[in-house]
Amino acid sequence: MIKKFLKKISNWLKSKLPYFIVTLLILLLILVFFYKRIVITIQSGEAGVLYMRFFGGTVTDYVYPEGVNIIAPWDHMYIYNVRIQTKFHDFEVLTNRGLPIQLSLAIRFHPAYEMLSVLHQQVGPDYINTIIIPEIESILRKQIGHYNPEEIYINKDNFLTEIIMKALDELGQNFVKINDVVIRAISLPDSVKKAIEAKLVKEQQYQAYHFQLKIAEEEAKRKRIEAQGISNYHKIISETLNQKIMKWHGIQATLELSKSANAKVIVIGAGKNGLPIIGNIPLEQAIENGKK
């Protein structure tokens, strides 16, 4: 009984074998043809969002991680770069005087991983040009429009950094995280730039001139103090150098000269006020000369 059943199955399989082979070949051809749509490899630093054509559209409650993922060929996997990226952007703003200024920005950002599927559904892959750049431009235009060209050119009180911090605070970073916004360059019209530079040069010259005046005033003050000190010194000497002191110095000088090996002619008591004469110069005059 069992043998008969197995034989029937074997005969049926043999009769259907060509159909099985054809079906298998068709499946293999489909697999080869749709391989890239079925087997999805998500590289390092990337994440995927799945769009299901017949079962609800975008999958918003799951983000596909790195590695190999198998999907139906009629569905589509959108791959996003979730690493920190840099976007360079140039645009023009107007100052409070209506003058145009060219700003060059460097924007560092990355999509929020957990919100990637919602970002894809509500914004799309071109989110950098859809939400990031327009919002940053709008905030910077609004803030910089309160300043004049000179304040912007010299970055007075480092206000550009404050503007950038305000821009980061005001940006809705639900879908995208803005790491930093750097102003790489500020370009003004040549006429405005030359006028500002000329003014800055004049201000530096003015400060240098006042610095030199300050030095001259300090030097004059020093000389007045020095002159007053010399005057006080001579006044004290003239008041204290009386005849008794001069005679005492004459005696000391005579004693010192007597010890000298050089030939000297000393006339004791021959000078004015009884002071000795050294050579042909009275000692009193010699002392006065030394004092001068």
Rank of each mutant, 00 (worst) to 15 (best):
M1T: 15
I9Q: 13
N11V: 13
W12G: 10
K14M: 10
K14V: 08
V22C: 14
V22Q: 05
T23R: 04
L24P: 02
L24Y: 11
L25E: 04
L28D: 05
L29N: 04
F33S: 04
F34P: 00
F34Y: 09
Y35Q: 07
Y35C: 11
K36S: 11
R37Y: 10
I38L: 13
V39D: 15
G45T: 14
G45P: 03
G45M: 07
G45Y: 03
E46W: 10
G48I: 07
L50P: 02
Y51R: 05
F55S: 14
T58I: 15
V59F: 06
G67A: 05
V68N: 08
N69D: 11
I70T: 11
Y78H: 00
I79Y: 00
Q85W: 06
K87R: 08
F88M: 11
F88W: 12
T95E: 06
T95P: 01
R97E: 12
L99E: 04
P100K: 03
I101A: 02
S104R: 10
L105M: 08
H110Q: 12
Y113R: 15
L116K: 00
L119C: 03
Q121F: 15
I128L: 03
N129T: 01
T130R: 01
T130K: 02
E135T: 01
E137H: 02
S138T: 01
Q143T: 00
G145V: 03
Y147Q: 00
N148R: 09
I152H: 02
I152V: 13
Y153D: 06
I154H: 04
K156Q: 15
D157V: 09
L160V: 08
N179T: 13
D180P: 04
A185V: 11
A185I: 07
S187A: 15
L188M: 12
L188W: 05
D190L: 06
S191P: 00
E197R: 09
V201S: 05
K202C: 03
K202I: 15
E203W: 04
E203Y: 02
Q207L: 12
F211Y: 15
A216Q: 12
E219L: 07
R222I: 01
S231A: 15
N232V: 13
K235S: 13
E239F: 01
T240N: 04
N242L: 12
Q243Y: 13
I245W: 02
M246K: 06
G250E: 06
L257G: 04
L257W: 08
S260L: 14
N262W: 10
A263M: 06
K264W: 11
V265S: 06
G269P: 02
K272A: 14
N273P: 01
N273D: 15
N273W: 05
L275V: 15
P276G: 13
P276N: 07
I277L: 10
G279F: 09
N280G: 02
N280Y: 13
I281E: 12
I287Y: 06
